[in-house]
């Protein structure tokens, strides 16, 4: 069900770890399947010089975080912000439909780490165009208005 590339990144995830004194940390959780990713970045001269992460999630989620770390490394902040769930899934030669939300998780966690960095570097932030999205927007984009998790079972009595 997974592509060879997904399997490769899943079995040998690159750049796993944390960065002590990171310039930005982004943590994103999935309220439906309960998964979580944390990205750590180091920024020098507007470029990501280190990207590390920790992931609690399925095989796809692990592969996504590994792929994102490779894609983001060495990129400028705006280039890294352009990494989307779609581009990650493409780089991985596709993900099963059921697993597309795992790629959202990765892109969002990376973007949150960059936002975290920018919140402490207002000049740099001013020169960058950030997509204006609230947490609720992100949630709705990903899971629909009320999420598509299983409806709570009606229990008689």
């Amino acid at each position: 069900m997974y592509s060879d590339k997904v399997m490769d990144h899943f079995t040998n995830p690159r750049n796993v770890g944390v960065i002590e004194n990171a310039d930005g940390i982004g943590e994103e959780g999935n309220p439906i399947c309960g998964d979580m990713m944390t990205f750590y970045i180091k920024v020098e001269d507007g470029r990501l010089t280190q990207v590390k992460y920790k992931t609690f999630g399925c095989g796809a989620a692990i592969a996504v975080s590994s792929m994102i770390s490779e894609m983001a490394l060495g990129k400028t902040l705006s280039e890294a912000l352009a990494i989307s769930n779609k581009s990650v899934a493409e780089e991985l030669d596709g993900l099963p439909p059921r697993k597309l939300h795992c790629s959202n998780l990765g892109a969002d966690a990376l973007h949150l780490a960059i936002q975290d960095y920018l919140s402490r570097h207002p000049q740099e932030a001013a020169s960058l165009k950030m997509p204006e999205r609230s947490r609720e927007d992100v949630y709705e984009e990903r899971f629909g208005r009320f999420g598509h998790g299983p409806a709570p079972t009606e229990k008689a009595d």
Binding site: F10, C33, D35, C58, G59, A61, R98, C102, G149, P150
Partner: peptide, 30 residues
């Protein structure tokens, strides 16, 4: 540890077959 990733690693690296009820493996993600 999330069950699906664990199950896959156990299968790939050791040829051991177990199962999990983790949300990631279920059709409904519940």
């Amino acid at each position: 540890i999330e069950g699906e990733g664990f199950l896959m690693r156990l299968a790939l690296n050791h040829g051991i077959a177990v199962s999990t009820g983790s949300a990631c493996t279920s059709g409904t993600l519940g």
